[in-house]
Design a protein around this nucleic acid. Sequence first.
DNA 1: TTTTAATATCGCAATATTACGATATTGATT
DNA 2: AATCAATATCGTAATATTGCGATATTAAAA
Lengths: 108, 108
Amino acid sequence: MGASKTDYFTEQQNQMATIAKALGHPARIAIIEHLLKVNACICSDIVDELPLAQPTVSQHLKELKNAGLIKGNIEGNSICYCIDEKTFQLLNGYFSNIVNTVTSQKCC
Amino acid sequence: MGASKTDYFTEQQNQMATIAKALGHPARIAIIEHLLKVNACICSDIVDELPLAQPTVSQHLKELKNAGLIKGNIEGNSICYCIDEKTFQLLNGYFSNIVNTVTSQKCC
DNA sequence: TTTTAATATCGCAATATTACGATATTGATT
DNA sequence: AATCAATATCGTAATATTGCGATATTAAAA
């Protein structure tokens, strides 16, 4: 088949997987890092920053937006993108919890 | 095409994408969370925990292992899996850095 | 109002992922 | 040695992702 059996997992697990999946491509990591670097909203230069065609970048931005990782505000005829803080806080909390749990156990 | 243009991105970006991608499936999130819950190495009950056939689980475990998210130690005729702490520390550092950077900026 | 610039959507080809039955492997048990 | 239990690998079908040319959309500029 190939259809992932989303129903069998908790909503939280599916949500975390969706977010992680959205970050699971180097172009999308590069977009996030670029947004961080310029440290503000940017309005169009993402296409110039990446070695990808405009429709491809647009698609990646859409996926990041759907996963809640970035926000996009319409600003005239261009769109202003920036990082959506709360999703990254969710990620940060998730992984810091894992690290805290794991370090207190002995393993292989 | 469809081939991701790995060469155009930094090694770090590719590494982060690989790790995130490995977490981008609810079954693999569920595996990680189960390993956390039992708080130790486990030797075979992952298949029983998931609504997936044994070959499928084996494949997911392989991907988690390739991404450095879990370790597997051979223990007789079974294999003992546990969380690979340092990769989660990497993730934790990455996202806490993002959160720290982002909160100090004003945005959309 | 025509043009231009920025972005999105469509359609499609190439590739990757997901799932699992069948089968192989490997070490323990009998 | 034969059997069993745990896990891995192979092969393959179904589906999803990736990338981009062509085209649409939309708002500003001329």
